[in-house]
Design a protein around this nucleic acid. Sequence first.
RNA 1: GGGUCGUUAACUCAGCGGGAGAGUGCUUCCCUGACACGGAAGAAGUCGUUGGUUCAAAUCCAAUACGACCCA
Length: 884
Amino acid sequence: MSIGTSLASVYDPEKVEGKWYEYWKSQNYFAPSDDFSKKHFSIVMPPPNVTGQLHLGHALDNTLQDILARWRRMQGYNTLWVPGTDHAGIATQARVEENLASEGLKRRDLGREKFLERVWEWKRLYGDRITKQLSLLGSSCDWSRERFTMDEGCSQAVREVFVNLYEKGLIYRGNYIINWCPKCMTAISDIEVEHADSDGHLWHIKYPIEDSDEFLVVATTRPETMLGDTGVAVHPGDERYSHLIGKNVVLPLMGRKIPIFEDHYVDREFGTGAVKVTPAHDPNDFDMGLRHNLEQIVVMTADASMNENAGAYAGLERQECRQQVVKDLEAGGYLVKIEEHQHAVGHCQRCDTIIEPMVSLQWFVKMKPLAEPAIQKVVDGEIRFIPERFTKTYTNWMENIRDWCISRQLWWGHRIPVWYCQDCGEVICSRENPTSCPACSSSELKQDEDVLDTWFSSALWPFSTLGWPNDSADMQHFYPTSVLVTGRDIIFFWVARMIFSGIEQTGKVPFHEVNIHGLILDGQGRKMSKSLGNGIDPIEVIEKYGADTLRFSMITGVTPGNDVRFQWDKVENTRNFSNKVWNASRFVLMNMEEFEPIKVEKDELTLADRWIISRLNLKIKEITDLLERYELGEAARGMYDFIWDEFCDWYIELAKPRLFHPANGREKAVVQTVLLDVLMGILKLLHPFMPFITEEIYQYLPGHNETIMLESWPIMDQSLVEPEAVEQMQAIMGAIRAIRNIRAEFNLSHSAPVKVIMLFKDGHGMKWFEDYGSYIKDLAKVSELQLVLELIEKPRQAVSALLSFAELYVPLEGVIDVDKEIGRLEKELKITGVDIDRAGAKLINEKFLAKAPPDVIEKEKGKIEEAMLRKEGILQRLQILRGE
RNA sequence: GGGUCGUUAACUCAGCGGGAGAGUGCUUCCCUGACACGGAAGAAGUCGUUGGUUCAAAUCCAAUACGACCCA
């Protein structure tokens, strides 16, 4: 019994995948070699958040990286793929707080230290879970180099960068307007705010002019903020208001006198063309306030209720306050009108609470000096976005960037390395924890309570994971990394920040290419989210269908950068493909008995052999080129088509007779060799996409080595590509299809033998079929095949197919319905006519003849010739049938 | 308001200057010694609309409609 027959007829990934992953890991195949003389290929994994488990987006992201890593490794690159996780400050803290809440606890009940212990516990649990999931997916990352954004090395990098930027004056602390989340109780950066259109109102309010009966009407969407108004602005030169410039209004409800001034920011078309200015609670007003030296009056507390500056409204929650203010304005006769108005409202990315813009004391990174070189490197092509269009997304954002608020009023994260002297007020920022004040020697030092934005540490990931700021071997050999693979949703959050951080800290770009992919959507095209409950756990898919299937189904036929809808149908189809690969391999293995490896001579190869070998070599080139261009979707599809259609449906079928009824032992050995070689080539090409099944099959193949992972990536051998073999095979396939078509149309049973006569126009074509007529006999179930150059009498009782190189007849005495056959031919005649007209129109067009490239003209000539021949054949055939 | 992407067969999507493709579904036949998670054959599309460039446009350009997303 051969190996093949002992294999199950249905592939079961569950029995295979875990085993090989353990093997690969134990053999250390994922780690790069110490031989740093080889060209390197390195990727750092976008670190998943330790907030929970991986979703399909991570599965896609890591599949893409694993394909690139496995492929480059096989190509001989010293390949390093660094895995790791992100502490995800605000997100993780929120999850742990939720958890605490279920025990009736708040973080302040525990205190900073105890709380952090809880978070570390959480991190261990979910960090491990993520590691497990990445393993299940087959990720060939080097676990010995696994990192975490808050491990010692990364923390050292964070500290170094902070101090560095601080010393250069690129980090500063100050009172500026920031986005405050009243639920998370922390400042957040501009990009952590999500804007959503909402139906609101536009309140028109009268502001009386000081010492006058006149008044001015302002329009606002947020009347409660008027309590903090410190000015009214109009567009410069707006004649409606020019006489009021320099005067004051008396702020209703508060009685404060505030100035009227001009500013270009004001849109004269919006509302009344006059706006109230609240510098402490609106970013635009903040800027105007700075331009015109206005007072900033914060009227809210950290939980977004009104503070003592709100006078009588102190203590009210901001929504209640709004209602009360409107009511009071109305009572006082200040309310002119209320309009329906749609406007964008900012929400916290994490908890969806409405953001309160607020002036607050925070730490910032000065962005202009960092952004400029970061834009330049991309413009210069030192960093290339794939697809290219994301370059614009990146540069547009970088060009309009504002300073980055990096302090967070959280506990989970890197604590800001700044101390304040309690005695003299000195601010100390240093690499080592200070013990005494350098100014007054006091030991009363207090560290800043805040932590850094979680993206501050992610921004350093490509070099912090390689050992920076130490001059490590990994840093020397693997930095800059080769490519960054990530989703289009974090270009701003992460990619941009890695670029400017890398350039600033290491003097080099962190990577040369950025491969951006889209998002995984649900079957209806919606983003997967917790609230919709439409998320799919990759583990569920892996358990049902296997990791290879999940990987392959997510990327097949997907355009780079485009979103992907997750379809169970497609997963199932891919499962079928896995099974196809399995069974084709099983077939090959089943027929390996008595196989001794032989050296096959070229003239021993049949047409089918030469055809499949040619096709394989062309496929090697095609797949390699596609991978080079990051067209992984097309590459996967190319493998699918080649394996299923060309290898299984044609080559294996043609191999059968030679395996089952060989003329001699040598003939069988030849076909066995070709089958094995082609299968080996297929497995290697497929391995990066489907690592598990390819390893499993590989290990059964005669002559295999340790692992398919260490096999070299195939290279096209031009000497094995024979275009004539491909052409000849195509002609024969065409004839087979024509006969099968006739069988189907005339309901000839599978077992019914048919006779076929082929009439050739010349000996060249006939020769092709003489040598390989057996293909037609075998695959079209033809009992008798006559090849002729002349027919004494063309059979009337026959069905015909007109091929470009021959006329094909299937005599069907008694079976054929002449009228039906005439109808069939007339339809074909019409199609042929269209072909002739189209090609003909081109060929009589002088401009076409003058301007089109010669090969295109030749092609058109060929088409028309071929169609004319077919037409002639059809006409003759019709004559015969009609008995004319 | 600015920007990006999409609009191709019933559905989900490839293709992106020279004869409309795949998978699923549908119709017909077939358990033919790898696979019914299979094989064979077939039906099915004025490639959103309107202009333009070109010998040639699903493919390039410009408008436009609709949908999705991003930024403000």
